[in-house]
Design a protein around this nucleic acid. Structure first.
Lengths: 331, 331
DNA sequence: TTGAAAGCGCTAACAA
DNA sequence: TTGTTAGCGCTTTCAA
């Protein structure tokens, strides 16, 4: 560094401490292989000069960047925010940094992957299992551990931590069916995984001979306001007891707020189940039923899988994380 | 890359295209300075081999990493999530990536800064204006544009985009005073900036001769549940009309839910103002008054300042972003 | 418009 | 335990 003048390099430190650069490198990376006195002298030189090792140089030479790339659609969504939080923390504890890219919900993943791979990450995390063939190939040929998260598929690129969204939809339908419902509605965001939940829900409902009276697809990411508006549109056909599944807790909350405004009793006239288990669902009034998935666990597992592979361990290639319906006041 | 065998380098591409490595480099970085036919041939070789340029090598050589480091307390908080979103997007459009570190609310910033500076970022963003002296010095000596965000101070490290939290507190107090309130309470998270808002609020209240009946400090980050609990504790002294300022919309929402559960009329008996302008405040019932600050604008401004400096422009060193009280159903 | 030489700052591999 | 040599894959600089 150095405000004026040259950046301090490992050679400067070596000269200052009266050792070879390689010895400084050892002190920094594998301090056990250096005599204690020498190490102390080097450490003193380091802090005297304010030396900050150049990780680009180190990475280029060692072919290890101590960095993991991650792509998620957004961090505005509590689920992904939590996931990135736990991923980052688990990797940080192991000495790795995370380079994050946000893909939005409109594709363009290829450029993001290429951009990250340019930094030569030691591992990669991508959201979902649907990728352009070229993207898949790039990831495969990178020769690093790759984890796909938040979904399942038959043929992962490498490793996978997620759950079956269609199964979630079916489980929620089942939950309602068991409680005697026969009229259903679903508010779904337009992204792949929300739509998979919708399909699972609709299919189970159809199999049971239930009636799906409405299933609007809303723009991703979901908002409370979108939930309110969808509910407003649904009101005219809400003449009988209905069970509503929302692809996000935000939609569910909006739906409930609007329903109560309009004098629709929850849960008697309208039963509601959300998805995501945000704090909102537990701490609002009425609290509402939702599907809980431990996002933090997905992040931790993904990080652990990458780290394990980096130290040469054989790892489970596929982890299905459980989901669970949490019954609350809305159903 | 290459699943088996060596990674493709610029020399491989050069050989494939029948040119020198330097020509390939020019095609990638400054394609205008290469003959069109040559460029085409090189591009063909690049995609044939699946070449992904090594940015560590490029950065080491050019001393530009095309990367900006950023430290925020958390991305779980909607305000910081939005900010990082806009920062990332603005920088991405200019060809820069963001390396994100999460500091939590407990310090340890020094290690994060050192870790990021090791990647030789072309710019840095840090949250707040309070830093350990050593951290300050490291940032200063890095010789790169540094932006401190989300606060103001007399003596920024380099550049600053933020607002005065004490002024926010004072403005909210003023807002209540104008409406004839004389009894006040405040729920505040324990982080620096929330406490600054609290102080500003308390001071203005005191100056006006108002009574501050309660001002608990809650753990950061704020939650809805914490707001409910704080309200439960406040109930016994809520015998007169009271105005409550919460350091976060989550606390405000929790407070309102709990108050209504307990039969306290909002806004007649209890007026509430939150902070942050989350969607929750606008779309819940009753909607609630809050302080809005454009987080996205802070991110965009910070990115723009860094980018401008990187192309050698002289830049405003301090941007005060406005805040505004949005009146809604709770006050 | 293109190429050759040198070097960015570090670490692997080997030697002492 | 420490040092020397070579080279990671690019770009800068200079030359043609």
């Amino acid at each position: 560094m150095g405000a004026k003048g040259r950046t301090v390099t490992i050679s400067d430190v070596a000269a200052e401490a009266g050792v070879a650069p390689m010895t400084v490198s050892r002190v920094i990376n594998t301090s056990d292989r250096v005599a204690a006195v020498t190490a102390e002298r080097v450490q003193a030189a380091i802090s005297r000069l304010g030396y900050v090792p150049n990780l680009m140089a180190g990475g280029l030479s060692s072919r290890r960047s101590r960095m993991v790339g991650a792509i998620v659609p957004t961090i505005t969504h509590p689920m992904f925010a939590t996931l990135i939080d736990s991923l980052t923390e688990t990797l940080r504890a192991a000495g790795y940094q995370v380079m994050l890219s946000l893909s939005g919900y409109k594709g363009g993943e290829d450029d993001l992957v290429r951009g990250l791979l340019g930094r030569r990450p030691d591992g990669m995390l991508v959201t979902g299992v649907e990728h352009a063939p070229a993207t898949r190939q790039m990831l495969q040929e990178a020769g690093i551990p790759v984890v796909e998260i938040f979904d399942t598929g038959k043929r992962p690129i490498d490793m996978l931590v997620g759950f079956d969204h269609a199964a979630v939809g079916a489980a929620v339908a089942e939950y309602f069916l068991v409680r005697g419902h026969d009229r259903f509605a679903m508010f779904s965001a337009g992204d792949r995984r929300a739509l998979a939940r919708q399909h699972g829900f609709a299919e189970r409902v159809a199999t049971a001979g239930g009636q799906l009276i409405s299933a609007p697809v809303l723009p991703a990411p979901s908002t409370i306001t979108a939930g309110r508006e969808a509910m407003r549109a649904l009101l005219p056909v809400l003449d009988h007891r209905t069970a509503l599944f929302c692809s996000s807790d935000l939609l569910a909350f909006g739906a409930i707020v609007e329903a109560r405004q309009s004098g629709i009793a929850v849960p008697d006239r309208l039963a509601v189940c959300g998805f995501g288990d945000f704090e909102l669902g537990a701490a609002s009034e009425p609290s509402f039923t939702t599907v809980t998935v431990e996002a933090a666990r997905i992040g931790r597992n993904a990080a652990a899988m990458i780290l394990a592979r980096l130290v040469g361990q054989t790892v489970e290639r596929r982890i299905e994380v459980p989901f669970r319906i949490v019954q609350r006041g809305s159903s």
